[in-house]
């Protein structure tokens, strides 16, 4: 079975995470699959050409014209396309940031960049694994399910679920904005566990309810401006849907 790993415009943090966090599993990955394209590990077998693959994992947002072209080629050559990480699944920081700059400005015009988009704005995506960076464990689970013709599972709970399970004090009680109730869980509440608020880097939870969350903020006497700003930061295009009633 052929796998391929690509990076569009990104920090390559997701692919790096796979290499560093899969540990001994990485060897298993190479042993069990034919991996013709994974630039961070070795020179692609067929050079720059996009090879045929059963499953393509694509990291990064679509920003440049070349990204667009590569992605289309990946789609045409792969049976299954998985968006790897938050850039690929929602556009991440680049989504909002690229809309805040004048892309027609002289020094940017020649770069052929357009406002950042998640993969799903350009091609059909079969599954999205969120996370900035993606979790190696979720990647493994998804892969093992996919090769057995089963749909991978996306967490249906928010970050609070894991945060409360750990017995953490809630940051909202300390009047600090935390996006936990809106954010897709699965990270083990990494940030709140060390006392930093959740910025929802994995995108919105499956059942995120912005209205409920804003009432909660109000009850706790926390202004909503900061929360909305934080929400726009990582959740990119997905926040747009959630924020459609807030300008």
């Amino acid at each position: 079975m052929k796998l391929a790993f690509y990076a569009l415009t990104s920090c390559e943090g997701c692919l790096t995470t796979l290499i560093t966090n899969l540990g001994p599993n990485l060897e298993g990955l190479w042993r069990m699959f034919d991996i013709d394209y994974f630039k961070l590990v070795r020179e692609p077998v067929g050079g720059v050409r996009i090879p045929k693959a059963d499953i393509a994992f694509v990291e990064g947002a679509v920003v440049t014209d070349r990204d667009r072209k590569t992605l289309n080629e990946i789609r045409n050559n792969s049976s299954f396309v998985v968006a790897l990480g938050t850039c690929a699944s929602s556009g991440n920081i680049a989504y909002t940031a690229s809309r805040a700059v004048d892309l027609d400005a002289k020094h940017l015009r020649d770069l052929e960049i357009s406002p950042a988009e998640p993969l799903s704005s350009v091609v059909a995506v079969d599954f999205e694994l969120s996370g900035c960076p993606v979790s190696a464990k979720e990647f493994t689970d998804a892969l093992l399910r996919l090769i057995n013709s089963m749909e991978p599972i996306q967490p249906d709970y928010s970050v609070c679920y894991e945060c409360r399970s750990k017995g953490n004090p809630c940051l909202l009680d300390a009047k600090r904005v935390c996006l936990g109730p809106l954010a897709m869980g699965g990270c083990g509440a990494a940030c709140p566990t060390v006392g930093s608020p959740c910025y929802s880097c994995r995108g919105p939870a499956v059942e995120a309810d912005l209205n409920a969350y804003l009432i909660v903020l109000e009850k706790k006497g926390i202004g909503k401006e900061r929360a909305l700003m934080m929400l726009r930061m990582f959740t990119g295009k997905k926040a747009k849907e959630l924020l459609k009633d807030e300008q």
Partner: peptide, 13 residues
């Protein structure tokens, strides 16, 4: 329940 965020803290704790 309009303000319920479905965070599940109630059952977790």
């Amino acid at each position: 329940l309009v303000a319920c965020t479905l965070c599940a803290a109630c059952t977790v704790t």
